[in-house]
Structure formats: structure tokens, C-alpha cells
Design a binder for these strands. Structure first.
Lengths: 349, 349
DNA sequence: ATGAAAGCGCTAACAC
DNA sequence: GTGTTAGCGCTTTCAT
């Protein structure tokens, strides 16, 4: 079909194996022949066939990126383009390609992952989420296939995994303490899907801070919602229907916060005068809410970048120690948090 | 290494070719042997090797997705996850995988694309953008490699391309007319990067509507900005510094609109009381601006879905006629447009 | 320093 | 219906 290594060999008057060595830039080939072969390549417009290479090499130079089921709107979150940008960036540097999962349901994704590993379609996999008791993660683990997780494995027993994560527990704790310092005591927590480990960690941080402060955790103040924007809106309805309205809200995700703020505006409640809000992620549009939201920057790009780094390391040195990378976070104070005034406290009742 | 077709053949006591035929579910194999072979497969846990298949077949069953250079923030737009979701959905149905470009600059991307086609890494390519005089598009075209474009080719002469697009000209024209009907005459246009064909089309639609209405197009009212959110903010500064401020804004992209609205809020100008805004795309967060923005839904998911459909068609039937698919758009009226009152007209001066 | 040849795992043309 | 065999294009011992 196309021009192959043989054609080049013929033209350069050498053996195919020599051409192969030139491609690999083997030091055992004389500069003279290297030159000649390269010339022949150019003349013929030779380009190595990827599949042939992969087959002979048992290596594809591509990494699989597995997203959560895109059936629901999770995927709409600007979080994903940004992690992928991070992964992309590092993969490109290290000359790895990216293969994307396309499944919409958990089962479809599981099938795809099996295909990727058993069919040797990729050299390693990055999991873009960490769900409690996740089939895919268990499978990869048990297959001993190179993979890294963005987030933390749900089981402490999975100590031999490589993952990159934020200290979500601490972030949530700090954020709660911050609100406490501002005088808030009725602090509600609007979490994401409880199946995701990050949600659990947020929850625990929130709980811990309250406990430390000697404040009872009220069940009515803790709600979880899967859907991003709709969830935010529903959560607000639930929370603001309570006899004792919260004066501050901790929201799992910036996009959700947009929903929260929208609904609050509709109720003619003002942020931060009537209620303070702080959330997580600091995606790019976050600074464009009205008012701009206070949030925790979790360094999404780095999460992706490091995950790719670790994975490729894992691929190159199979026996290597599992590594846990913690990406720092940082509170970004903008305009949705305010000191609680006694007057507001009244009003809230 | 792993279990191959030969192992299965041996166990089932047939020839390797028979096993291959069973995989392809060839009708020329008796049900009896099919059963036997399948059993052997299960017993051994056989899974076909992808690379071997691709090599023998000259077909990879994967499609390359090429994004604009992610170095700048273009990529942050929720537009991309959504097109990809569309592409994903269709590809999955048709059992194609997705391979993503990772290059950050135009040159890097070009190199990658060459690799994909020359290295036979993918069977076809979807271009997620359409830039004026784009190297990649030209290359693909000249190589006669199967590809589809989301957007319209910049050259009318490229009549043999398959692409899926919105009628961006018409959408922009309609939107301008709508503002005109609301009594606005000082209508500004905030466009995206002029290198993108969509920007040109928007521009033309805007111009046409004004001309039809007998209104002169003022150069000061037309600004272009590459960066999404920052661009929106800068544009507002420029526009509102004019002696005669516009009373209405047409913004190329919802995300930009967030920036626009943020800046307007900072200037204490109210939307839609002081200025009306209408924009394009209707990404998911669009309804969560305050106030919720009026925008044109361009059906992003369908753009991706159809692009994948067309491409795979192109791959299966090489000689097929090029096709142009037009995805309908729809104005979504929310709360950022208002009839111009004489009083407002005064104020604007 | 280079060549010959086997093999990566699968498909397909050709036999029977 | 099923087996034989020759590739697909590259890498990699093993010779020399």
C-alpha cells in the first residue's frame, strides 16, 4: 500500500532491519548509512506505520482516559476540559497519545476498559474520577494494569495504587472554619454525588470543623445532589424552606454554585448579605458570577498533568513504587462571604 | 504472551482462520463449530488484539478528534465537552473509538495530524473548528483523507468537503433584527477570533440586518476578542467608553457574555435596563447567569453527533458524495433583552 | 556495523 | 464448511 520500510531499504541499498535501527536511532549504525537511509526516507516520504510498530513492540504509546458516565451532566463540568488539558500537556511532552472512553453508562465504560486493556489498545489508563466501590477501578487493580486515579481510592486497603488528589478533607475543614470565624454557625453543606469519594471527604472535613467548634451537625443542613446546576437550585429550595435557615453555604462545586446563586436571586435573597457562599474548584468561569464567588482553587490542570506524569512513569518502570501525589489547594477570596452580623442572624430566623 | 487465536484454535481443534471467522461471525461457519470455538474462547479468556487486527485489516476503528490549539483558553469553553459528548455518543453506537489531539500550538497539531493519517492511527478525522486558511484542513483535503469539519470551510471552492454547521449568518441576522424590533439602533457586536469562520459569518449576518434596516454600520461598534472571558470584559470597556454608548450587545459566545455581564455589573450598569444582550451557543451554564441570558441554542450535541455520523459514512463508503449538514438553531428568550425606551435612549447619550 | 529471518496476532485469498 | 498459507509493516535475535 503505502511506502514501507522495505522500500526505503531497497532505495538506500540496505536491509530492512537497518532502516528500523535508523528509526530507533541505534548507535550501532554508522553515520554514513544513517544519512543515506534518512535521505531515502525523505525521498520516498516514508512514515512509520503505527499499528505495525505497536504490534511488534507490544506498546502503543497511548494512554486511555476514562471519564465518568457522560449520560448525566457530570461531564458538562468545565473541570473535565481542564484536567484533560493537563493530561494532554504532559502526554504530548512525553510523546503519548490520548484515547478517550465513549461509554455513557457504567457498564458500557467497563466494557470499553476491558477492551482497552485486553485488546492492548493503550499502555495505561487514567481514571478521571473516583467512585466508591468502582467496578472499573477494581478491575484495573486486579489486572495489575498500569493506571492512575484522579482522586483517592475509596478503600484504604488499596494502598498500592498511584493516585493524585487534593486534600479535600482539609480543604473542606478549612472552609468551614473560615465561615465559623466569620461568625456563622448555621452552615449548610451542599454536596455532590455521595458515590464519589471527594464528596465523602468534603463531608468529613465539614463535620470535623463543626465538631471541633462544638457545634452539632444538623441533618437538615446536609444535602447531596447529583446534577450540577439543577441540584444547586433544588438544594437551595430545600435549605431555605427550613424553619431556621442557614446563613452560610458550602457548595461542592462552582457550577453548582451558579445554580445556587441563581435560585437565591430568584428568591430575592442577596449574596453575601443574606447568605454567604463558598465552594470548590475555581473553574475559569467562577470569577464571572455575580458577585464573583469565593472558592477553593484545586489546581485542576496540575491534577491532570501529574496524573499523566505518574502513569507514564508507571508504564516505563513496571516494578516502581506506587506514588501518592497531593496537589495543593488555595482559597480564593472573592465576594460571596461576609461576616455574620447580629441583624442578619435575626433575619435568618 | 497473552492468549491468541492460535491457542483458541488448538483447544477447539480447528484452524486459526476458523477462529478468525467466528470472531467476524462469518455465515460460512457451521453453528456447531461456532459454539465450540466460542466455548474455547471463554475457557481461555481470549480477547482479540487490537493492533494485530488493525494491521491486518488496514482499519483502526478509531476516529481522530482535533481540537483548536488549547494553549489559549478557547478550549475552556463548555462547547467542547458538549460536542465531544455528541461525537462520543454516535461513535460508541457505531463502535468507533476516539483518539484526541494533544498539541497546544498550531504546528504541534499539524504534526500530530500528519502522524494520525500517515501512521494510519485513525480511520478518519473530525475537525472541531474551522479557521480561515487552516493548514490542517488544507492538508487533509489534499491528502483526500476522510474527515468532517464542524463549521464551514473558509473557501467556497472547497465544495467537496463534508461538514456540519449552523446557519450562523442567519442566526446573527435574526438576532440583530430582533434587537432592531425592540427599538435598538445602537447595536454593538462583540465577536470572537476573526480567524474562525463562524466569526465572519456572525459579522456578515449582523451587517446584513443593519443594512436592510438602513442603519449604518459603525466601526467602533464592532470589536473582536480572542480570549473568552477576558475578551468580554475588555470589549465592554471599549464599548462603554464611546461617546455614544450602544444600547444593545450581540456577543459571540455565552462564556464571553458572562465576562460582559460581570464588567457591566462592575460599572453599575444594569442588564437589561441599561443594555440588552443576546449571545450564541446556549451552553449548559448559560441559564444560570444573573439575569439568565437570552441566547441562540445551536444544538452543540447534534453538531458532534452528526459530524461523527457523516465521518463514519465517509469511511465506510469511500466514494460517497460529500454532504453538508445544517443543524437548526433556536433563539432562547430569557431575561437580557428589553425594548428600548426613549428614556433609556436619553440616558445612553 | 549490517544482514537474514523469525515473529508480533490477526485476516483473507485460495484450496479442498 | 474448514484448513493452509501468505501477508499486514515493523522489531529483534542471531549471525557474520
Amino acid at each position: 500500500m503505502a511506502v514501507t520500510i522495505k522500500d526505503v531499504a531497497k532505495l538506500a541499498d540496505v536491509a530492512p532491519s537497518t532502516v528500523s535501527r535508523v528509526i530507533a536511532n541505534s548507535p550501532r549504525i554508522s553515520d554514513r548509512t544513517k544519512e543515506a537511509v534518512r535521505e531515502a526516507m525523505n525521498e520516498l516520504g516514508y512514515h512509520p506505520n503505527f499499528n505495525a510498530r505497536s504490534l511488534a513492540n507490544q506498546s502503543t504509546k497511548t494512554i486511555g482516559v476514562v471519564m465518568p458516565n457522560s449520560a448525566n451532566k457530570t461531564f458538562q463540568n468545565p473541570f473535565f476540559p481542564e484536567v484533560i488539558r493537563g493530561i494532554s500537556s504532559r502526554s504530548h511532552q512525553l510523546e503519548y497519545g490520548l484515547y478517550l472512553s465513549t461509554g455513557q453508562t457504567e457498564d458500557e465504560i467497563f466494557e470499553e476498559v476491558q477492551d482497552m486493556v485486553l485488546g492492548k489498545r493503550v499502555d495505561g489508563i487514567i481514571l478521571l474520577y473516583s467512585r466508591v466501590n468502582d467496578k472499573v477501578m477494581n478491575y484495573l487493580h486486579q489486572q495489575k494494569f498500569p493506571f492512575t486515579v484522579i482522586g483517592r481510592p475509596y478503600e484504604p486497603s488499596m494502598t498500592d495504587l498511584t493516585y493524585v488528589n487534593n486534600d479535600n478533607f482539609k480543604a473542606a475543614k478549612t472552609v468551614t472554619e473560615y465561615l465559623l470565624l466569620l461568625g456563622h454557625e448555621k452552615i449548610a453543606f451542599i454536596g455532590g454525588n455521595l458515590d464519589f469519594v471527594v464528596t465523602v471527604d468534603h463531608m468529613e472535613g465539614y463535620r470535623k470543623a463543626l465538631t471541633n467548634a462544638g457545634i452539632d451537625l444538623r441533618d437538615e443542613y446536609v444535602v447531596f445532589h447529583e446534577e450540577l446546576q439543577e441540584g444547586g437550585q433544588e438544594a437551595v429550595i430545600d435549605l431555605m424552606s427550613l424553619a431556621e435557615r442557614p446563613t452560610a453555604l458550602i457548595v461542592a462545586d462552582d457550577i453548582m454554585t451558579f445554580g445556587v446563586m441563581r435560585m437565591l436571586a430568584e428568591m430575592e435573597m442577596s449574596v453575601p448579605d443574606d447568605v454567604s457562599i463558598i465552594s470548590f474548584n475555581n473553574v475559569t468561569i467562577s470569577e464571572l458570577s455575580s458577585p464573583p464567588m469565593t472558592t477553593v482553587d484545586i489546581n485542576i490542570f496540575s491534577l491532570g498533568y501529574e496524573a499523566a506524569s505518574c502513569l507514564i512513569d508507571l508504564i516505563h518502570k513496571p516494578g516502581i513504587e506506587p506514588k501518592q501525589v497531593l496537589i495543593p489547594h488555595k482559597m480564593i477570596k472573592r465576594q460571596t462571604c461576609q461576616r455574620l452580623t447580629p441583624k442578619l442572624n435575626e433575619k435568618a430566623k
